[in-house]
């Protein structure tokens, strides 16, 4: 906490981050509407060809439109990441509140479980879940949710414990207010900003994991347009078409930078 208080507030950073993400979301959602095209349609005549009207970012080694592949890739990873973060945040919030309210063995068991998960590398957990679950996208969702809930749980528990012990909550309890009122007026305003930061970091972590596993060929399978997969596919053609490789590289960097800036401050 000490470090978080000391670092200066950076509202500018958050605004820039939100702007970058808005541009990316606009491209991913509206791009294929403005320039219709198919991310899977191959045309070997156009292999590694430069931009044209139907493919504003040029073509990849199989002559597929990079514009459309990038737009679909920028829908896929963020969608999986957001689904995983939403699941993880709800689970973390519920379990964190449960631990703070019940205390005793409930809390002890949950904390031990969370601590143990913290010791295991997230990518490893995702890889194992991917091997168990049918379907790569659902596997990523389940694996990433399993990894990410710990952060939300720890935040909720720590904040709720401190707030529940405060005189304000005691007074509210003595006045006869119910738990839902106490949660809405006392706990949620404390937890919400921390959850937002954790959610932005969690989304970035999830997108990095999907791209990293795609890049080492154990994540999404071809021909799915995915950021890491696109990079590893285009890597052999770096000399012929550097821009083709740089397209997913720049997009990934911009996406992660936007999320990091939006999160603001340090990883708690």
């Amino acid at each position: 906490m000490r470090t978080a208080i000391l670092s200066r507030p950076q509202p500018m950073g958050r605004i820039i981050g939100a702007a970058i993400l808005a541009v990316i979301a606009g491209f991913a959602l509206l791009g294929p509407v403005l320039v219709p095209g198919d991310p899977f349609a191959q045309s070997l005549m156009k292999s590694l060809a430069g931009p044209d009207a139907a493919a504003p970012f040029g073509h990849d080694h199989l002559g597929r439109s990079l514009f459309h592949r990038l737009a679909y890739a920028l829908r896929l990873s963020p969608l999986i990441a957001l689904a995983a973060v939403a699941t993880a945040a709800s689970a973390g919030l519920v379990l964190g509140m449960l631990a703070a309210l019940r205390g005793g063995w409930t809390e002890r068991v949950l904390v031990i479980l969370a601590d143990a998960l913290l010791a295991l590398p997230g990518l490893l957990m995702v890889l194992i879940v991917l091997a168990i679950m049918p379907g790569t996208a659902t596997g990523f969702w389940a694996g990433l949710s399993l990894v990410l809930w710990v952060e939300f749980f720890r935040l909720t528990r720590a904040t709720a414990r401190a707030t529940l012990a405060s005189p304000a909550v005691q007074a509210a309890k003595l006045l006869g207010f119910g738990w839902s009122y106490i949660f809405r007026t006392h706990l949620w305003p404390e937890i919400a900003p921390l959850m937002l930061t954790a959610a932005a970091f969690g989304t970035a972590t999830a997108i990095m994991a999907i791209a990293a596993l795609g890049f080492v060929s154990v994540g999404m399978r071809a021909p799915t347009p995915e950021l890491g997969l696109m990079m590893v596919e285009l890597l052999p053609y770096w000399r012929e078409a550097p821009m083709a490789l740089l397209t997913p590289v720049i997009a990934t960097f911009a996406l992660l930078l936007g999320l990091t800036l939006l999160a603001g401050g340090h990883k708690p």
């Binding site: 950073g13 890491g228 960097f253 992660l256 990091t260």
Partner: peptide
């Protein structure tokens, strides 16, 4: 901040290139 937004595999890719 910029470095933190570069995942390790991307850093490796950039350095290799």
């Amino acid at each position: 901040t910029a470095l933190k937004a570069v995942p390790q595999f991307l850093m490796a890719l950039i350095l290799i290139l």
